[in-house]
Amino acid sequence: MELTAIIAQLVFFVVAVLTLAAAFLTVLVRNVFHAALALVGTFFGVAAIYLMLEAEFLAIVQVLIYIGAIAVLILFAVMLTRGMMQSQESGTNKQWAWAALAIAVLFLGLFILILQVPWVHSGTAVYTDTTPYLGTELLTTYLLPFEVVSVLLLAALIGAFIIARE
């Protein structure tokens, strides 16, 4: 194997392990505030994965939206409901063992499935700035979905405001 391939795979493994570790912390830690911070770590890891897939725009949007907006919303919600953090009961419900078992089976199935399918690599490794193409696509081919998503976002904004208002 080439030197660059070894380095690329090494970087991938480090990022993947860190991302999965943060994801495990998110679902296992009892303190919800710590879980939210681990979630931020997972988001960063996923942004790094996007960078490795040469989707720079998406990586930056991931940091801007997921960390700058969604994670902050979650942290706000954790703070506003901080009375819940005093309780000493465990963070998981009674069905966690069954859930874990079913999910282990699911993961095993997915794992075997992924390894058996002969995936085609037809992507070319030409590096250019793809953002202008993305912008053009968004405002031509995907114009209607783009507008629908904008309206949906507006509706969610107003809805969230009405629901959370005292």
Binding site: T19, L20, A23, F24, G91, T92, N93, A99, A100, I103
Partner: peptide, 14 residues
């Protein structure tokens, strides 16, 4: 793996 971890969190957290 990430999907399964997330699913576990959604199913098992209080």
């Amino acid at each position: 793996a990430l999907f399964c971890i997330g699913l576990f969190g959604a199913l098992s957290r209080r």
